[in-house]
């Protein structure tokens, strides 16, 4: 198990009244993503708990790409991962941010 933390510049703050959303399930090769509004001065904070140790740089790259595309801020993103591939991670994060903001990218 490894715990990783990241912060990104973010962008347009999401509505603080948005309810927390949970997307995906923690099955083998999959991940769950919890998105909550948080007063972070427009930034995004991400915490990853993963069964696969030693992939911090890949997480950094995938997450940076996702949040560069989404340009959302003031959210806390918590991820539980059971060995998902980068493609699955990106797909699930898009889905999670869409669920949370109630719209597409």
């Amino acid at each position: 198990m490894e715990r990783l933390e990241y912060e990104f510049d973010g962008g347009a703050p999401v509505a603080p009244r948005n309810r927390p959303t949970l997307t995906g399930v923690l099955g083998s090769g999959n991940l769950e993503v919890l998105v909550e509004p948080a007063d972070l001065g427009g930034r995004v904070r991400v915490e990853v708990q993963t069964a696969a140790v030693g992939f911090g740089a890949i997480w950094q790259a995938v997450l940076a790409d996702v949040f560069a595309r989404w340009q959302v801020g003031d959210i806390r993103v918590s991820i539980n991962d059971a060995g998902a591939t980068p493609a699955v991670v990106a797909l699930r994060l898009d889905q999670a941010l869409s669920d949370h903001t109630g719209g597409g990218a």
Partner: peptide, 24 residues
């Protein structure tokens, strides 16, 4: 007791198993 309450299993981490936010 929704996922954001983070009431997860305290028994899984020591066995190297990730714990789900809602304990399944």
């Amino acid at each position: 007791v929704p996922p954001e309450a983070r009431i997860t299993s305290p028994h899984l981490a020591q066995l190297n198993q990730p714990a789900a936010f809602d304990d399944g």
